[in-house]
């Protein structure tokens, strides 16, 4: 009867487009780093240390964004840094997505003691400051890319578990789940074939937003000296190195900071755009 016209829906298209463009740019930059970077990001040139960017008075096109304390080319470091930051962020977000989704879906679908154990553990973990836990573990086992992914991935599972748990409980009550049971389907089949597909839109959104979180956390850990060890080019390390020279060479920290802000903003915009786009309430219903 009354078909509802879903109001102006340009907002999320712009968000998705702009967000995706930024994210795509960052990913391309990471992949094509050896082609894009004008210099070796680790080559020191003590004669050219602390050069300002090209538009400053003493700037030169040789180092478009200037150099750091050891004369390393900042643009190259920024480009290479995106590799580790994005890889760590995406991998950690995916790891926690897998962990959290599986546990959350199990808790929501099976209920009973399994639900009690998983969800109480998630609550306890949520109450514990994430970054503090990450600091403790990295301080103990040392910083390497793999350790960072593991630590950040494991410490982020509860967000997914909570969301997936609640959604699974709602989906479990829908009649088509009972229909599948009546056809003789196993729990694993139902979870994979009937429950999970209903959760994908939300999972996509949460996961996207979590990538931004993870990049920020990697940066924070590196900044605190707990991430990848210093010569490695990551945005967090660049931020940390720039901190000491903030008054004499502000550009070192500025560009890393800007890169982080831009990428995180782009990812968040993409995530929010996706959420609006996938929100079933915004879609036409019959």
């Amino acid at each position: 009867m009354a078909t509802r016209r879903s109001g102006p829906r340009f907002g999320h298209r712009i968000k998705i487009g702009l967000g995706a463009a930024i994210v795509l740019g960052a990913v391309l930059m990471a992949i094509l780093a050896p082609l894009l970077a004008p210099h070796d990001p680790y080559r020191q040139d003590l004669l050219a240390r602390l050069q300002p960017p090209v538009w400053a008075e003493q700037g030169a096109w040789k180092h478009p964004l200037g150099t750091d304390n050891y004369g390393r080319d900042l643009l190259s470091r920024l480009i290479y840094g995106s590799r580790l930051s994005i890889m760590v962020g995406v991998s950690a977000a995916l790891l926690s997505a897998v962990l959290g989704s599986v546990l959350g879906m199990l808790a929501g679908y099976k209920g009973g003691w399994l639900q009690q154990v998983i969800m109480r553990f998630a609550d306890a973990h949520l109450a514990f400051p994430e970054i503090l836990l990450a600091i403790l573990i990295v301080a103990a086992v040392g910083g390497s890319a793999l350790n960072l992914i593991l630590v950040l991935g494991v410490s982020g599972w509860m967000v997914y578990a909570r969301v997936m748990y609640n959604l699974t409980r709602a989906v479990r009550e829908r009649p088509f789940i009972e229909a599948a049971v009546s056809h003789g389907a196993s729990d694993a089949y139902i979870l994979a074939r009937h429950v999970f597909p209903q959760l994908v839109p939300v999972l996509t959104v949460v996961c996207t937003l979590q990538v931004a979180q993870m990049i920020l956390q990697e940066t924070a850990l590196s900044f605190l000296g707990l991430g990848l060890p210093p010569p490695t080019a990551t945005w967090g390390n660049m931020l940390a190195e720039g901190r000491d020279r903030l008054w004499v060479a502000p550009w070192i920290a500025n560009f890393a900071g800007l890169a982080i802000i831009l990428v995180v903003w782009g990812i968040n915009m993409l995530g929010n755009g996706l959420r609006e786009h996938l929100d079933p309430k915004a879609k036409e219903r019959r």
């Binding site: 009649p175 009972e178 599948a180 056809h183 003789g184």
Partner: peptide, 22 residues
Amino acid sequence: LRAVRRRAQMIFQDPYGSLNPR
């Protein structure tokens, strides 16, 4: 149990909810 379930099937009341929309 799953094998037995296949010998008996159900028609549901809700023609909207009992079919997976995806």
